[in-house]
Computed example of a mutant assay.
Amino acid sequence: MKTKMNEDKAVDIIVYILLALTGIVTLYPFYYTILCSFNDGLDLMKGGIYFWPRKFTLSNYELFIGDSDWRHAFFISIARTLTGTILCTGFTSMFSYALSRNNLMFKKAYRFLVVFTMYFSGGLIPYYVLLRGLGLLNTFWVYVIPGMVNAFFVMTGINFFSSIPESMIEAAKIDGAREIQVLLKVVLPVSKPFLATLSLFAAVGQWNSWLDSAYYVRDINLQTLSYKMMTTINQTLATSANAEAAGQISQANTATSFTVQATAMAVSMIPIMCVYPFLQKYFVQGMMIGAVKE
């Protein structure tokens, strides 16, 4: 018995060590990004900074906040994330609830179309032509309208809403509630795990997205924070002209293009880090939706 207990302890120690190493390897890049954002840019170029700022400064954040382009891109990202998350959560929930009802006509055909769109797409050019025909190109709504319904979460929502007892819905209908009232007052209040998981994934997807800004938007006033970070990094690495410009900025503000990028990345992580703790208690339960059938 003692030998078995000692073996269990040894296994636990090994597991904890592996988990600690995995956590360090995973979290250190984020910590290093924040570290660089608080360090003097010229001093950072010397290297040798690993655990704390050698020359602490807030000039990187002052430069970031003072740059109207970065500031505007940040607000555009916030606007698209809030709007896109609300619309995606609302329309995906309504669509999946409708497909979960047994009395819906052509339910199998609708489900087939949803599954079909998960595996096949029309391609980039037809999609571009469609957006142009709808008048969405070079507008803010090109960020949110195409993602109002998430096919994967529609299938997940169908499984979740189907698990809600039919007696609850029937009781509401007997009391005179219409379908929309049943959805808003009966179904959604008991669907917090699904709604929290859907909202979190939709928000992260909207916040990190930059391809739509690159392909479908030409107006610089509609550029998102993710797209601006991507273009800044690519321009800095690709052209010597940008490198010289970055050098001029460094001399004047003791900031380099890398420290400004690190500052932008640190700022971009803050909203998601603030939202996640409030949704964490629903997240695990929401991820298990449809995974186990009794």
Rank of each mutant, 00 (worst) to 15 (best):
residue 137 L to T: 13
residue 38 F to R: 04
residue 148 M to I: 05
residue 93 S to A: 14
residue 6 N to M: 13
residue 48 G to L: 03
residue 159 N to I: 02
residue 28 Y to F: 05
residue 116 F to Q: 09
residue 13 I to Q: 10
residue 33 T to W: 01
residue 200 L to Y: 01
residue 208 N to A: 10
residue 152 F to E: 04
residue 276 Y to F: 10
residue 5 M to R: 14
residue 139 T to W: 03
residue 272 I to F: 00
residue 187 V to E: 06
residue 138 N to R: 02
residue 65 I to P: 03
residue 240 S to R: 13
residue 154 V to A: 08
residue 225 L to G: 05
residue 125 I to Q: 03
residue 196 A to G: 08
residue 72 H to S: 11
residue 246 A to G: 06
residue 203 A to Y: 02
residue 111 R to M: 15
residue 255 A to Q: 09
residue 264 A to M: 02
residue 293 K to T: 07
residue 32 Y to E: 04
residue 167 S to F: 05
residue 130 L to Q: 13
residue 45 M to L: 14
residue 271 P to F: 00
residue 212 D to Q: 11
residue 181 Q to W: 12
residue 211 L to M: 15
residue 21 L to G: 05
residue 5 M to A: 15
residue 148 M to A: 03
residue 268 S to N: 11
residue 25 V to H: 00
residue 132 R to E: 14
residue 137 L to N: 04
residue 96 S to R: 03
residue 294 E to C: 11
residue 143 Y to I: 01
residue 184 L to I: 14
residue 69 D to S: 12
residue 83 T to E: 07
residue 58 L to S: 11
residue 109 A to K: 02
residue 175 D to W: 02
residue 83 T to D: 08
residue 187 V to S: 10
residue 168 M to C: 12
residue 114 V to K: 05
residue 216 Y to E: 08
residue 280 Q to V: 01
residue 254 T to Y: 12
residue 253 N to Y: 15
residue 247 G to K: 03
residue 118 M to R: 03
residue 148 M to N: 02
residue 34 I to T: 08
residue 129 V to H: 09
residue 123 G to C: 01
residue 23 G to C: 09
residue 20 A to D: 00
residue 54 R to P: 00
residue 57 T to W: 03
residue 254 T to L: 15
residue 132 R to F: 01
residue 235 Q to E: 15
residue 285 Q to G: 09
residue 226 S to T: 02
residue 246 A to K: 04
residue 141 W to E: 08
residue 11 V to D: 05
residue 189 P to I: 00
residue 10 A to T: 02
residue 134 L to H: 07
residue 91 F to C: 12
residue 280 Q to E: 04
residue 59 S to H: 14
residue 252 A to H: 02
residue 122 G to S: 07
residue 240 S to L: 12
residue 175 D to K: 07
residue 284 V to Q: 08
residue 292 V to N: 04
residue 281 K to S: 12
residue 221 N to D: 14
residue 187 V to K: 10
residue 134 L to D: 06
residue 198 L to D: 01
residue 110 Y to T: 10
residue 135 G to S: 08
residue 66 G to N: 05
residue 109 A to S: 07
residue 203 A to K: 05
residue 232 T to I: 01
residue 55 K to G: 04
residue 39 N to D: 09
residue 166 E to K: 15
residue 62 E to Q: 14
residue 99 L to D: 04
residue 247 G to D: 06
residue 236 T to Y: 11
residue 180 I to C: 06
residue 122 G to R: 02
residue 258 F to Y: 10
residue 42 L to T: 09
residue 7 E to P: 00
